[in-house]
Simulated scan of single mutants.
Amino acid sequence: MNVDLFDFELPNERIALRPVKPRDAARMLVADGTAEIADRHVRDLPQMLRAGDVLVFNDTRVIPAQLEGQRGEARIGATLHKRIDLRRWQAFVRNAKRLRPGDVISFPAGVSATAEQRFEDGSWTLAFSGDEPVEVLLERAGRMPLPPYIAGKRPTDEADRSDYQTMFATRDGAVAAPTASLHFTPDLVERLDAAGIGRETLTLHVGAGTFLPVKAEDTADHRMHAEWGRIDADTAARLNAVRQKGGRVIAVGTTSLRLLESAAQDDKQIAPFEGDTAIFITPGYRFRAIDGLMTNFHLPRSTLFMLVSALMGRERMQSIYAHAIEREYRFYSYGDSSLLIP
């Protein structure tokens, strides 16, 4: 499909630079398979779902994966996006033309890394020096990797250390937040529990590739960056049991959805999964694992807008986004939410 079909005009003032407080006070657009659209709030979620439904969250934790350093006199910026092994990460590098294999980049707080190999997409393998875990080094020298549409408008600050982390974050490894889960609070979770709505977690370590623009003119020519994920056998079994009993599996965020669909079999059963996924969902895809999606509002021409267009229909999503823009919903990572049930 032509990528231009997934374009739309978004006024800059619709881009949220900070989250609302409390988190569940964010607005939530609700759309189903009809032409109706409802304007609600995230705190209304228990009334929007049914007892027996289950919400599936991503429990990945964002690490401070942005680094600013130097190679000699050259300033080098690095955003880690995928772990290779205990000491090596694949990273997008700013000012990469000043790097050669074997160059050592010095970062703050005594942290350094060697640029080992350049990939076809322009990213590099960085091998960190010393014996301390890389996560410890990043806590000392790194910044939270806010997406460019926020970081380009204001500096990262201490508030982002907590704002850009979900209440479910327990497993280090993401360089972008599963932002749909940012809206949840302990109070909201208690009310969901009281309403008989279940919760499950999986892990997908979101990479910085999620923010890369689609440069191809046709979706068939775009290649997704791989991300590591895991669904254990017990979780898969419980999710299958939910659907067998008539409940719905609602993915909280496109990251949860992509991993669930990666694990789904032809018979719509969810199997245990551990490994990389580069699944790219566009209109025409037949969903096997999920019955709905809670997600924020995405960039024009992005793989995530293509995903929600696959779920609801491209023309329907264009109409939903036009409604959201007109009603002044807040967009992107710190923005408002939507509940999409086809």
Rank of each mutant, 00 (worst) to 15 (best):
D187S: 14
A195T: 04
P178D: 03
Y164G: 10
F211T: 11
T179N: 08
D172L: 06
M144F: 09
A169N: 05
L182S: 01
G152S: 15
F211G: 11
E190Y: 12
K215H: 13
D163G: 02
F168G: 03
A169Y: 02
R171A: 13
H183F: 02
G209Q: 07
V206G: 02
R161N: 07
K153Y: 11
P155L: 02
M167V: 14
T170W: 05
R161I: 04
R161T: 07
L212K: 14
K153D: 14
D160I: 00
I197H: 11
R154N: 05
D163T: 00
E158V: 04
P178V: 00
R161P: 03
V214G: 04
T203V: 02
T203C: 03
D163E: 10
V175K: 01
Y164L: 11
A159W: 07
T179D: 07
F168A: 06
G173N: 01
E200V: 06
P186K: 08
D193W: 07
L212N: 10
G152L: 01
M167G: 13
S162N: 03
G173R: 05
P148A: 08
R154F: 06
M167Q: 13
V206A: 05
G207M: 08
P148R: 05
L192A: 02
A208M: 08
A169E: 02
D157F: 13
H183C: 06
P147F: 02
D172S: 14
T210Y: 06
L188I: 06
D187E: 15
R191C: 11
E158N: 03
A176T: 09
E158F: 01
Y149N: 14
A180H: 03
P148T: 04
T156I: 14
D160E: 03
I150T: 05
P147Q: 02
A174N: 02
E200D: 01
G173H: 01
L202H: 00
P186L: 08
P147K: 08
G207Y: 01
T166K: 07
L188R: 07
A180L: 10
P186C: 09
D187F: 12
T210L: 10
Q165K: 11
L192F: 00
L188Y: 05
D160G: 00
T170F: 08
D172H: 05
V206E: 02
P213D: 05
V206L: 05
V189D: 08
R191V: 11
L188A: 07
P213R: 08
V206H: 04
Y164P: 10
S181K: 06
D160W: 04
E190K: 15
L182Y: 01
P213K: 09
D163I: 00
D172A: 15
A177E: 09
D193S: 12
L192C: 04
D218S: 13
G198K: 15
L192R: 01
D187G: 12
K215E: 14
P213A: 09
R199E: 14
L188E: 08
F168D: 07
P186S: 02
D157K: 12
T179F: 06
F184C: 06
L192W: 00
T210F: 10
A176H: 06
E190I: 13
A180N: 05
T185S: 10
R191L: 11
G198H: 14
K153I: 10
R191Y: 12
F168N: 02
V175W: 00
V206P: 00
T166V: 03
G196Q: 14
